[in-house]
């Protein structure tokens, strides 16, 4: 019974990490430099989940953990801004500025899903706690 609480907790942690990644994606929607200051548009972060075998119960229920945080590999969003100080100077994209290619709607939907999943796991934890409290009533 108490293992169920651990499993729900692992899901809470995983969804919180996912929500953090989504916030970072939205916050960096217009970041044209990367964290080292290089001219490289921000790449969208994806959090990849994986069943956590450490939280396996004897009946086969498993928890969840974050396998890795990966970055997207799509083309940046080129906008023609020849007067921009960071505009590309030569080649095919001369005069363009490379912006991150982040789909705002998609991020919002993901944030909503992560929030609902967090709430669902909180609900399960409530049920688990109720169950264990009820079982105490057998004693008295």
């Amino acid at each position: 019974m108490l293992r169920a609480l651990d499993i729900s907790t692992s899901a809470l942690v995983a969804q919180r990490i996912r929500l953090n990644a989504i916030s970072s994606n939205l916050a960096n929607m217009s970041s044209v430099r990367d964290e080292n200051g290089e001219l490289q548009p921000f790449k969208e972060r994806f959090v990849v989940f994986q069943p956590d075998e450490e939280l396996r119960t004897s009946h086969g229920a498993v928890g969840v953990k974050v396998e890795s945080v990966r970055t997207e590999t799509v083309e940046p969003n080129y906008r023609y801004q020849p007067g921009h100080p960071l505009a590309i100077q030569q080649g095919k994209w001369k005069g363009y500025v490379a912006y991150p290619n982040i789909d705002m709607m998609g991020q919002f939907v993901d944030a909503l899903i992560a929030t609902r999943a967090y709430e669902a796991n909180l609900g399960i934890m409530e049920v688990t706690k109720n169950l264990s409290e009820r079982s105490l009533r057998i004693i008295g």
């Binding site: 108490l2 609480l5 907790t9 919180r16 934890m125 706690k129 105490l136």
Partner: peptide, 17 residues
């Protein structure tokens, strides 16, 4: 990890009860 700690508190409370 705030979630883990709160879960441990809940489990501990169950032991107490």
């Amino acid at each position: 990890g705030i979630e883990q700690q709160v879960t441990e508190v809940a489990k501990n409370q169950f032991l107490h009860n």
